[in-house]
């Protein structure tokens, strides 16, 4: 009898949604529990860091790692899980390309601390104290992991074998990845798995008519036609520059895609691709008109890189 594959799950800077997403395979979770040995899953089971540290290097067959690398503890665990795992999977947008936490790369540690611990209107902090990596309490010493200036993806921290996009990945895709793993049918390392090879637009049922727009609308400003392409109605939609796989979910609620499945195959920078796609629907014959129309797009960086700033070419903004 062949030994069951040993599988681990871990979360770093995450929201917990990726762990819930694993459970979203619903009754198949029992099949999974049958087919593999889950050796580490802090959210669901009683195992500790020490257990993992005690394992031999490479003794975990596959580790599904969600969450971004925001602090020193996240990085330590990324290195630990890499060392112990034969296959390391970046699961979900945060691990894959920084996710929402990577919007923090529009600021830095000092900026975030200033806002959270001084600037916020409910904060009462006359002494301007800040969390410290090491602090002497009356009763003893307390420690905190160092908070980084820049959020990194898992792949920017350690070598990663597979990437599963999505915030969070959709259940049918997660299951497809588990199946491929169990059957030994995973593609070559370095691949994106649990997603399609096209764009969200290719899966979307909203009809495209090659229309151009004279005006962009923000989502609260317009009630769109539920049958037609949102982008062609002037709502910035990330579908054209986002990898297929979710089934074009967000447009089914009459709201635009925000790009959580990351760039489509062959695209190096999702934001740049999206910029071109959005510009392509601008109905302008003069420079002035083009300028006027695109000036209605509210927040290019936060929209085009909503889930992937850490994984973008420039990775972060320049701050003082």
């Amino acid at each position: 009898m062949v030994a069951k594959p040993r599988v681990a799950f871990y979360w770093a800077a995450s929201c917990g949604g990726c762990d819930i997403a694993v459970l979203e395979i619903r009754e198949k979770i029992l099949d999974l529990a049958q087919a593999v040995d889950i050796v580490f899953w802090p959210v669901a089971m009683d195992f500790k860091y020490q257990d993992v540290e005690a394992m031999e290097d490479g003794s975990i067959d596959a580790c599904f790692f969600n969450g971004a690398i925001r602090n020193a503890e996240n990085e330590r665990l990324a290195r630990l899980m890499r060392a112990k795992s034969k296959i390391l999977v970046a699961y979900g947008s945060c691990a894959y390309e920084g996710g929402i936490p990577a919007l923090g790369n529009l600021s830095n540690r000092a900026g975030i601390f200033e806002t959270v611990y001084s600037g916020s209107p409910s904060t009462a902090n006359p002494d301007q104290s800040r969390p410290r990596t090491s602090h002497e309490l009356a009763e003893g010493e307390a420690e905190l992991p160092a908070f980084y200036d820049t959020v990194k993806s898992l792949g920017q921290t350690v070598d990663v074998d597979y990437f599963v996009p999505g915030c969070p990945p959709q259940a049918h895709q997660t299951w497809a990845v588990f199946e491929a793993l169990l059957k030994g049918e995973l593609p070559p390392p370095g691949s994106v798995v649990g997603a399609g090879q096209k764009t969200v637009c290719d899966e979307c049922e909203h009809v495209k008519e090659e229309k151009r727009v004279k005006q962009f609308f923000r989502i609260h400003e317009i009630i769109p036609d539920a049958q037609k392409c949102l982008l062609e109605q002037g709502i910035v939609c990330c579908g054209p520059a986002t990898r297929s796989g979710c089934g074009a979910l967000c447009p089914t609620a009459n709201l635009p895609c925000r790009g959580c499945y990351g760039p489509p195959p062959g695209v190096v920078d999702q934001g740049a691709k999206l910029l071109s796609a959005v510009a392509s629907v601008v109905d302008a014959d003069t420079e002035e008109e083009a300028e006027r129309i695109v000036s209605q797009i509210a927040d290019p960086i936060g929209t085009f890189y909503r889930f992937g700033l850490a994984g973008s070419l420039l990775r972060r903004s320049r701050t003082q």
Binding site: A13, S14, C15, G16, G17, C18, D19, I20, A21, R70, N71, G99, I100, P101, L103, G104, L106, S107, G111, I112, T115, V116, G119, S120, P131, F147, C167, P168, R218, I219, H220, R258, A298, D299, G302, T303, R306
Partner: peptide
């Protein structure tokens, strides 16, 4: 800490429901 209070600054406010929901899955 993830710092939502800081990086929500500069975002269009109507996008915040979809951003801040990522505080907790």
């Amino acid at each position: 800490l993830r710092g939502f209070e800081k990086f929500c600054q500069g975002r269009p406010v109507e996008e915040l429901p979809r951003i801040t929901s990522r505080i907790c899955g």
